[in-house]
């Protein structure tokens, strides 16, 4: 049975993730150029990996495959952003 402390920490972790997305959406609206928007999505994706490590590390379910899963999802988001925002043509 999970302790109250455990539930509070997990709730905070979820709130932190939602807050990060909210801040990213505000920054997204403030910027006008595609490069800045791509960097916002890139940073958010990298923070998502760190969040995954923090969350699963706390719940004692962190292993290489879970880390790989979060990395792959972040890679999908980064590549989609590069394609969708027209950034890939500069590389």
């Amino acid at each position: 049975m999970k302790s109250k402390h455990h539930i509070i920490i997990i709730s905070i972790q979820y709130v932190v993730l939602i807050l990060a997305m909210f801040v990213a959406s505000l920054l997204f609206q403030k910027t006008a150029d595609n490069f800045s928007r791509f960097y916002i999505l890139l940073i958010l994706s990298l923070l998502y990996i760190l969040w995954g490590v923090w969350h699963h590390g706390f719940t004692e379910r962190l292993d290489k495959l879970i880390l790989l899963e979060y990395s792959l999802v972040s890679a999908i988001v980064i590549l989609l952003s590069a394609l969708g925002l027209g950034i890939i043509r500069f590389f």
């Binding site: 990213a24 959406s25 928007r37 999802v73 989609l80 952003s81």
Partner: peptide
């Protein structure tokens, strides 16, 4: 996260 990225791409103009 994926839907957030999709929304961002939708919101953005492709030109510079």
């Amino acid at each position: 996260l994926l839907l957030f990225a999709v929304a961002g791409i939708w919101y953005t103009n492709i030109g510079l």
